[in-house]
Simulated scan of single mutants.
Amino acid sequence: MTAIHPLGLRERKKAKTTTDLIDAAYALFIEKGLSGVTAEGIAERAGVSRRTFFNYFPTTEAALTRGISDSLIDLLTVGLASRPADESVLDSFEAIASGGNDPDFLRRIAQLGAAGASDPTAKEILHAAILDWMAWFIDFLRTRVGGDPFDATHLATAICAAAQAAIITWAERNDADLSPESVNDFRVLLLRSVHHVRRGFDETPTA
């Protein structure tokens, strides 16, 4: 089981400010679209100065990117910590994918996917978030799995690429729909992505 170490007071304050800024950025994005997400607006909504915003993020896009990558990292960190230490990474990932999904995370990727149909910046944010998550996952698996770093890198990259296919496919086709049926569709796509990593593409894809 992976240990999760508690944060000190200073780290907790920084983490809260980071979360507040990200939440403010997404609140503006959902209300006004990407063009309505400004550093001034984020800072005002989060109750901090514009200077504080730039102490945490270089751009508004970086705040939006972090909102997705942090959710993915948190999902795996908490999920893997609850799984048996001797369980395979793919089995653990499949169990996590079968479980519940964070509604805020789903809302964010759904909105980015819908916006990405007409705004390439939204697509870039989603892709950048997945790349950040992949970099974290590679380091995580190199520590957890050990052995040849190539094997951990290959496995992490395969899982993240498969999950990326599920995330982007669902985000682009659901038109910001968060109904139970749509959320279940997301879960099904994630499980299909795990299946392809396990078995490859030697079988005829199903509709």
Rank of each mutant, 00 (worst) to 15 (best):
A3R: 14
I4Y: 02
R10S: 12
E11K: 09
R12C: 09
K14S: 14
K14G: 15
K14W: 14
K16H: 07
T17K: 13
T18G: 12
T18H: 14
T19E: 11
I22D: 04
D23V: 14
A24C: 08
A24N: 00
A25L: 07
G33P: 09
G36V: 05
V37P: 11
T38K: 02
G41F: 08
I42C: 04
A43L: 03
E44H: 14
A46S: 08
S49W: 09
R51P: 03
F57K: 07
A63D: 02
R66N: 09
G67A: 08
D74Q: 15
L80S: 12
V89P: 04
S92P: 03
F93D: 12
F93A: 13
A95G: 06
A95D: 13
G99F: 04
G100N: 13
N101H: 13
P103N: 10
I109G: 01
Q111M: 10
A114P: 00
G116W: 02
D119L: 10
K123N: 14
I125W: 03
I125E: 01
A128H: 05
W133H: 14
M134F: 10
F137Q: 04
I138Y: 03
G146L: 06
P149Q: 02
P149Y: 04
Q164C: 12
A165V: 07
I168K: 05
E172C: 12
S179C: 02
P180D: 13
P180F: 06
V183G: 08
F186W: 06
L190F: 08
F201C: 07
D202E: 13
P205D: 10
P205Y: 01
T206Q: 15
